[in-house]
Each structure stands twice: as C-alpha cells, then as structure tokens.
Amino acid sequence: MQFLKILFWCLLAFVAAVFTFGNWKWVPIQLFGNLVADVNLPLLMVAMFLLGFLPTLIYQRAARWRLKQRLTQAEQSLATLRANATPAEPIFAPEPKMPPAAVPSAVPPGVS
C-alpha cells in the first residue's frame, strides 16, 4: 500500500511539473493605485489555492480538536460516574413461585 501512495505522489508531482513548464508565463496583476505586479502563472495558482485551502484546513483542525476535547471530557465524567456508582439491583426480578396451596395435586380432591 505504501508503494501506491508513493506512486500517486510521484505522478501528482510529475503532472504539476508538466503544468508548470507548459504555463510558465508572466501574468500582470493590477494592485491598488497604478501598481502592476508581474507574477508567474503557476505561482499565482499555488497562492490562490493556498488562500482558499488554508482557512478551511484551520477550521477543520480546530473543530476536530474541539470534538476531541469534548470526547475526553465525556469519557472522564463517565469514568467518574462509574467509579462512584453503587451496584444496581437486577433489572429483571425472579419469577414469583406459586404458593403451595395453589399448586395442583396429582390426586383429585375427595379421592383417597
């Protein structure tokens, strides 16, 4: 499985390199005022990708961290409750036995 991961990343790097060499052009960007910045197209695309990806990644990591903290706190409180709990009565009570008078006898009454 590790070989497939390495193969995938190598293939992705190769595609990125081919894209970069095929699109190595200078792109003028109008900044505030009359300033113009000339930026390579691949660099501009990487910068825009990171500009959109990083806030999402940071939000996802923060939410995951927050959920881990809540889970740890819930596990600790559950362990505390289990340690302090008294043994509970059984949920199902044993079936009541019939009194001896209500038990039918094998011999009918009046016959000896």
Rank of each mutant, 00 (worst) to 15 (best):
T80P: 00
Q60A: 13
L57E: 00
N84A: 09
N84E: 07
A79E: 02
E75N: 12
Q69T: 15
R61M: 13
T80I: 05
R82D: 10
Y59N: 05
P87A: 07
M48S: 12
P42L: 04
A79T: 00
A62Q: 07
A88I: 12
V46K: 00
A74R: 09
A85L: 13
L50T: 01
W65E: 14
T72Q: 14
E89D: 14
W65C: 00
A83L: 10
L54M: 07
S77W: 11
M48P: 06
A74V: 08
Q69N: 10
L44H: 00
L81V: 07
A83T: 02
I91Y: 10
T72Y: 12
A93Q: 15
T86A: 11
R64T: 05
A63G: 03
A93K: 09
R66N: 10
A62L: 09
F92R: 12
L50N: 00
L41D: 06
F53M: 03
R66A: 09
L41G: 00
L43C: 07
P55K: 09
R61Q: 11
P42N: 07
L71T: 08
T80N: 09
P42K: 07
S77T: 06
A79K: 10
V46F: 01
L78A: 15
P42R: 03
Q73V: 04
T86P: 10
L71I: 14
G52M: 03
T56R: 15
F53N: 07
G52A: 05
L50P: 02
A47W: 04
L51M: 15
S77R: 11
A74D: 05
Q69V: 10
N40Q: 13
T80A: 10
R61E: 08
N84M: 09
E89K: 11
E89G: 03
P87T: 08
L41E: 08
T80M: 10
A88G: 14
L50G: 00
K68G: 07
R70T: 09
T72P: 03
A63L: 05
L81T: 09
L41H: 05
L81Y: 08
L81F: 08
A47R: 01
L78N: 10
I58T: 06
S77N: 13
L78G: 05
Q60K: 14
Q73R: 14
G52D: 11
R61C: 05
T80V: 04
P87D: 10
L57F: 02
L71D: 15
L50I: 00
L43K: 02
A47H: 05
I91S: 13
V46N: 00
Q76E: 15
L43T: 03
A63M: 03
R82H: 11
A88Q: 15
T72I: 13
E89N: 12
Q73D: 13
Q60I: 06
F53S: 06
W65H: 14
L50R: 00
R70G: 14
W65L: 14
A88L: 11
L78S: 01
A88F: 09
